[in-house]
Design a protein around this nucleic acid. Sequence first.
DNA 1: ACAAAGCGCAACCCATGAGTTGCATGACAC
DNA 2: GTGTCATGCAACTCATGGGTTGCGCTTTGT
Lengths: 106, 106
Amino acid sequence: MSTDLVFTALADPTRRTVLDTVAARQGITATQLAADLPVTRQAVAKHLQVLADAALVEGERAGRETRWRATPAPLTDAIAWMANVGAAWDDRLAALERATRGRNGS
Amino acid sequence: MSTDLVFTALADPTRRTVLDTVAARQGITATQLAADLPVTRQAVAKHLQVLADAALVEGERAGRETRWRATPAPLTDAIAWMANVGAAWDDRLAALERATRGRNGS
DNA sequence: ACAAAGCGCAACCCATGAGTTGCATGACAC
DNA sequence: GTGTCATGCAACTCATGGGTTGCGCTTTGT
């Protein structure tokens, strides 16, 4: 489905760091994220938007700040694609596909 | 380690199609790949080079043609990263990490 | 009421990358 | 030996994307 958005979102190292941090510190804000990164808040905001388009994060406005939290479901699609590519000649990846199948969260 | 190269390689849709096709038809050549794609042979060759840099494919010269075949090992790293990000709040992804651990093929 | 904090939007650089054409080289067929 | 097929390399175009600055808006605190 939207595998393309997911892979695109994961392609950038800074964006992976953002996702990683959001996953570790749920409810973090863009300003807080930017404080630990060598980029501006606006750059972080853009990354969050890309991640949100891929449904990897979700933002909720709380007063004057926006709390971000990670939503892992789309990662399953990406893993499924990799497993499908690898399954033909690698049973280990086939096992991974088996682990994901039928449990796609929402 | 070289997770960056893997994610970058997987980011492009055409490149994913190339990898997909190479996985399905091991020993395929760049010219054959280009025949089924809306891009030129040189474009395919570039994609194959990127995939090779990420160690996702391997080319072997056989006479005047180069046979390409897929090598799945780096996908495990990518999956491991995703599983690590997701593991904190999603046990399904934690199960995936368990499935990959300790079996990193070469 | 006023100042500061946090955010979103828009315009703007600039580097990277996907794709192309052109050409030169090595291998196969006859 | 000559023509052809597949490849590799180089130069070039062009769009996309990561990053920035600047501004205006809403919310919070005093």
